[in-house]
Design a protein around this nucleic acid. Structure first.
Length: 414
DNA sequence: CGGGAGGCTTTTCCCACACCTCAGG
DNA sequence: CGCCTGAGGTGTGGGAAAAGCCTCC
C-alpha cells in the first residue's frame, strides 16, 4: 500500500511537498495546494515508491516504479542487469495540475494513481512545470564554466557583499539561518561545493529559481569561509577541482574499497544540511561526528580517529539533534566500519598555522552558539487548516464571524 | 563626534481550533 | 494490560505592533 496520505490518511501518498513536509495523495495535493496563491507555489514531486521518504527523481520504465536518487542508485547502479533500465526524469511542478496535465509531463501517471479531476477547483488548474528534474530542485547548480560565485545561481547573490567586500549568502539562503554565512572573495572554485553525483538517467544539473527544497539546506551549518574549506570538506580546493575533473564522485567511489554508496543519502527531508555533508563527504563511512571532524581539522591536538568503529555516527541536524536515525532511514547502519579517510592526507602542508586554526575554531564555536534554524512544519494537517482559516487582521476568528481575509477566495467580507 | 529624528527592516505577539499527549477510570 | 474519556497543551499563518537598525542632519 505504501505510505498513507498525511492529509486524509486514507489514500496512498503519491506526491511529496517539501514546503509542507508532507506526503499527499493526488487529490489532497490539489486540495491543499489550491488553497491560496502561496501554497500553489509549493514545488512538489513524486514520492519515492521504494523508501517512501525521499523525492523521486526518475521513473524506471521496466520496473514501473518512481525512485529517489538513493534507491535509484541502489537499484540500478548496483546491479548489472538493472543498470540498462530505461529511466525517465521526474520533474518538479507547482500549481494545481489536472490529471491530464500530470499525465502530460509524466506519461506514467495513470500507472501511479487514478485521479479525480473534480477535486480541483476551477481556476486553480494552471500548473507550472519546472524545467529541471526533481533532483535538480534539490541540488544547488553546477556551472563549471564559470568559477564565479554568482554562477551558483540563487545560492549566492552578487548583490550580497558586505562593507568589506566579502560575499554573503543570499537572502534566499540566509533566510534559512538568520546568521549570514560570510564567504570570502571567490578566489576559489565552488564547484566541489555545488557538485553532486548525477544520477544516471537524469538530465544535466540545472538551476532552480523558485525552490523550496533549498530551504532546509542551512549554509550556516557550515562555516562557508573558503579559508575554512579544508576544515569543512577535508580537501583543498585544488584537490576538489582535480577530483571533479577526474570523474567526481564516480571516481571517488571507485577508489574507496568497500565504499557503500547507500551511505550517500541523496536527500533527507528531516536533515538536509547533514545529508548535504554526507554527500560531499564519502567519509560518512567514518562514524565521526561532523563537529568532531571540524574540530579535528582545526585543533592541533586532535586528529582523525583511524579506527572509530566504537564511536557512533552523530551528525547534527538543523535543530541540533543527532540524526543517526536518518542514516537508518537510508537503510544504512549508523555504525559503519571506518577506513582511511580518502581525502585526508595528514601531511604538513595541510595543517593550518596554529593561530589560524585557533581563530577558525573560535569562529566555528561562535557560529554554533548563534545558530538558529528555520521553522519546521511538524504537522502538515495543522498547516493545511491554518492555510484555509479565515482571519481578521491576520488573527484567526471564530467560525461564522465576519472576516477580512479568506485565503480560499481572496475576497473580503467588507 | 555625539545625539535626535525619521525611515526601514526584523522580530514578536495575537487569534481559533483541530490535533496531540497523558492521566485517570 | 488494553481501551476509553476528558483535560490541558501545542502548532499553525497573516497582520499589527514593537523593537532594532541605519542614515542623515
Amino acid at each position: 500500500m505504501g505510505r498513507l496520505c498525511d492529509f486524509c490518511g486514507d489514500q496512498r501518498s503519491i506526491v511529496l511537498c517539501r514546503s509542507d513536509a508532507a506526503c499527499l495523495c493526488l487529490s489532497c495535493d490539489r486540495n491543499v495546494h489550491s488553497a491560496n496563491a502561496l501554497s500553489r507555489r509549493h514545488l512538489r514531486t513524486l514520492l519515492c515508491e521504494r523508501c517512501n521518504l525521499h523525492p523521486a527523481i526518475s521513473r524506471c520504465a521496466e520496473e514501473k516504479i518512481s525512485l529517489c536518487q538513493n534507491c535509484d542508485w541502489i537499484g540500478h547502479a548496483g546491479s548489472t542487469s538493472a543498470s540498462g533500465h530505461k529511466r525517465q526524469t521526474i520533474n518538479c511542478y507547482s500549481g494545481c495540475p489536472s490529471a491530464a496535465e500530470l499525465s502530460g509531463i509524466w506519461s506514467f501517471i495513470s500507472e501511479v494513481s487514478s485521479v479525480d479531476d473534480s477535486a480541483c477547483e476551477q481556476g486553480f488548474g494552471s500548473m507550472s512545470l519546472m524545467e529541471k528534474s526533481a533532483a535538480n530542485c534539490l541540488l544547488p547548480p553546477v556551472d563549471k564554466s564559470n568559477k564565479d560565485l554568482s554562477s551558483a545561481g540563487r545560492s549566492y547573490d552578487v548583490r550580497n557583499k558586505d562593507k568589506n567586500g566579502t560575499w554573503l549568502a543570499s537572502s534566499s539562503l540566509a533566510a534559512m539561518d538568520t546568521v549570514p554565512s560570510v564567504i570570502d572573495q571567490p578566489t576559489g572554485s565552488l564547484d566541489s561545493l555545488t557538485a553532486k553525483p548525477c544520477c544516471s538517467g537524469t538530465k544535466g544539473v540545472g538551476h532552480c529559481d523558485d525552490d523550496d527544497f533549498y530551504e532546509d539546506f542551512s549554509m550556516a551549518d557550515m562555516d562557508m569561509s573558503l579559508e575554512n574549506y579544508d576544515e569543512l570538506f577535508g580537501v583543498s580546493q585544488n584537490q576538489s577541482q582535480h577530483f571533479l575533473e577526474n570523474g567526481g564522485m564516480d571516481s571517488l567511489f571507485g577508489d574507496i574499497p568497500g565504499a557503500d554508496i547507500s551511505t550517500l543519502c541523496a536527500y533527507d527531508a528531516e536533515d538536509s544540511s547533514a545529508s548535504w555533508i554526507r554527500e560531499l563527504q564519502p567519509a560518512c563511512n567514518n562514524p565521526v561526528s561532523l563537529d568532531s571532524m571540524i574540530s579535528c581539522k582545526t585543533d592541533p591536538n586532535l586528529c582523525y580517529p583511524k579506527q572509530a568503529s566504537s564511536l557512533s555516527l552523530s551528525f547534527s541536524g538543523p535543530n541540533g539533534e543527532s540524526s543517526a536515525g536518518d542514516y537508518q532511514d537510508c537503510g544504512v547502519s549508523s555504525t559503519v566500519l571506518a577506513g582511511e579517510l580518502p581525502w585526508h592526507t595528514p601531511c604538513p602542508e595541510n595543517q593550518l598555522p596554529s593561530a589560524s586554526r585557533d581563530s577558525a575554531v573560535l569562529r566555528y564555536k561562535e557560529k554554533k552558539m548563534k545558530r538558529k534554524f528555520d521553522k519546521k512544519i511538524r504537522y502538515a494537517s495543522r498547516k493545511a487548516r491554518a492555510d484555509v482559516r479565515k482571519r481578521v487582521k491576520g488573527r484567526f476568528i471564530k467560525a461564522g464571524e465576519a472576516y477580512d481575509y479568506d485565503p480560499m477566495c481572496k475576497t473580503r467580507s467588507y
